[in-house]
Simulated assay, not measured.
Amino acid sequence: MALDIEYRSSPSPWVEGVWRSRSTDVATMTAVASPRWSLVLWEQASRAFGAVQGPGSRAAGAPVPEDATFFGIDFALGATMPRLPVGGLVDGSAELPVVTRRSFWLDGSAWHRPGWDDAEEFVGRLVREGVLARDPLVADVVRGAQPDLSPRSVQRRFVASTGLTPGTVRQIERARHAAVLLRHGVAIADVVHGLGYYDQPHLARSLSRFIGRTATSLRTGAGDEPLSLLYKT
């Protein structure tokens, strides 16, 4: 069984990355936690589907349509659709109501389906039409800046834009980074030290919650289900 995934980063400040994949003899996968929401379009048996996938606060099993092709845009932290608040999509999704192989319905309008090479152009149209908005405070907090606001105000605005607290986002990003390092053969002790975990049990708890794997299984490639997209954070 296989879930072949191709990923590229994006130069757009609104987009974290663009990906495409194909499923072959796969019924389920482990969806790792992700602090970002995504637009996902897929085709199966000559039918088209689409959804806005919310952030994932934990690893969870997910069904995979058989013999399907997928295309996704992962939006940058802080990007949001005002008329579809991301906070209501954490660990969930919103199915797009009308999807064809050429277009789909989003935010009350029909949009031409984007592809691998024109994803940023599509996102630019969303911005110009007011479908996408962004709170620059989120990027400042992620970079470690201290906004001139009370901690409660910062947390409220961060959660409103991302659906998650700054602490949860940092934990997810660290666990994803740890998983990438382990899959590349880095020693467990080096990951613990390099990423600031207290000890190996601390790393183990984080991986179990956010990745759904143990450190050993990530290093050896063992696991009954394929993992969803992982990339170096």
Score class of each variant (00 low, 15 high):
D4K: 15
Y7S: 05
R8A: 10
S9L: 11
S10C: 04
S10R: 04
P11N: 03
S12P: 06
W14N: 03
W14I: 00
W14P: 02
E16L: 09
S21V: 01
S21A: 15
S23N: 05
A27R: 10
T28R: 15
A31V: 10
A31C: 05
A33G: 03
A33H: 00
S34T: 10
S38V: 04
E43M: 12
Q44D: 12
Q44L: 07
R47D: 09
A48C: 01
A48G: 00
G50Y: 00
A51N: 06
Q53E: 14
P55R: 06
P55M: 00
A60N: 04
P63W: 11
E66D: 10
E66M: 12
E66K: 15
A68P: 11
F71P: 06
G72C: 01
I73E: 01
D74W: 06
L77S: 10
A79E: 06
T80Y: 15
R83H: 12
R83Q: 14
L84Y: 07
G87T: 10
G88S: 13
L89I: 08
G92I: 08
S93W: 02
A94M: 13
A94L: 13
P97Q: 12
P97D: 14
P97E: 15
V99K: 00
L106R: 03
D107Y: 05
G108F: 04
W111N: 03
P114S: 03
G115H: 04
A119Q: 01
F122R: 04
R125E: 12
R125Q: 11
R125H: 10
R128P: 00
E129W: 08
G130K: 01
G130N: 05
L132E: 12
A133W: 05
V138F: 04
D140R: 13
Q146P: 00
L149C: 09
L149I: 09
R152S: 14
S153Y: 03
V154E: 02
S161L: 07
T162W: 05
G163L: 00
G167F: 02
V169I: 03
Q171W: 07
E173S: 12
E173Q: 13
H177A: 15
V180Y: 02
L182A: 10
I188S: 07
H193K: 12
H193L: 12
L195R: 05
Y198R: 15
Q200C: 01
L203C: 08
A204T: 15
R205Y: 04
L207D: 01
L207A: 09
R209I: 04
R213E: 14
T216S: 14
S217K: 05
L218W: 04
R219I: 02
R219M: 14
G221N: 07
G223F: 00
E225D: 11
E225F: 07
S228A: 07
L229M: 14
L229P: 02
L230E: 09
T233S: 14
